[in-house]
Amino acid sequence: MQAVQSSFYLEDPFGFSATFVGFDNYIDALTSDYYLHVAKFTLIFTILVTFFSLALGLLLAAKADDVIRGSSSYKTLLISVYAIAPPVAGLIGMMFFDQHIGPFVKMAAWFGWDMKVGINYFDTAFAMITVAVWKQIPYNFIFILSGLQSIPVSVREAAAIDNRSRFGRFWTVTLPLLAPTAFFLLIINMTYSLFDTFGIIDVIVKDKAANNPITLVYKVYMDGFRGNDIGGSAAQSVILMLIVLVLTFFQFRFIERRVHYN
């Protein structure tokens, strides 16, 4: 709880003195244009990463559940990316978006898109989101697939008799049965986009946050360890703690409900 304490103080960079400043650090953080700008990007980033990684994970899991031949090799190949560390994913991503050798930059050039990752704000954000989604798909895939496989065969057969259209069946029977898993994954993906993408972002912006998109966690790190603004950084991390608290609260409320489903 030291973070809460130091968030109320203004400390000089060498730690010799600390002045009590009350809620000033919070007010500074919440009213600064830059903080709000970063918060806005974090929100957009979280929504996009959560949406795309869940959608692609769902698509692949549904297909892997359908096929019979080769399903275990698909599974093995698809989950392998889970084990890659975010910064390593970021490094590989940077190479693909590299100015000299990156195939994505060349592909973008075909469409007349002059991509400059690391310099152009939008392009950097695009690369970040792509890498973050790529890294998170296997996780969603594993959970959705195990959710799909726990749906009893009898339910599936009943549905197959009632409804001939595969898509209709998926929409009206499978998806509602997946709802608990999906909700759990929604929370997990939000926490992932908020915190675990730190490595990806750090490798992509390389300490030069100046004109690049960063998330709130990265700002905590930049202010606290690079800018030596301990109080301000602590205040920001307390705000983040509150966000985590709310997310976790929802998660546990929901787990209680899930016990009901089973």
Partner: peptide, 23 residues
Amino acid sequence: MHKTTFSDHLILLFGVFIMVGPI
């Protein structure tokens, strides 16, 4: 159960390509 179609495999192969390709 239904028959698996060619497009199922196509989507999966594409997924594998995207996931494993960079590695």
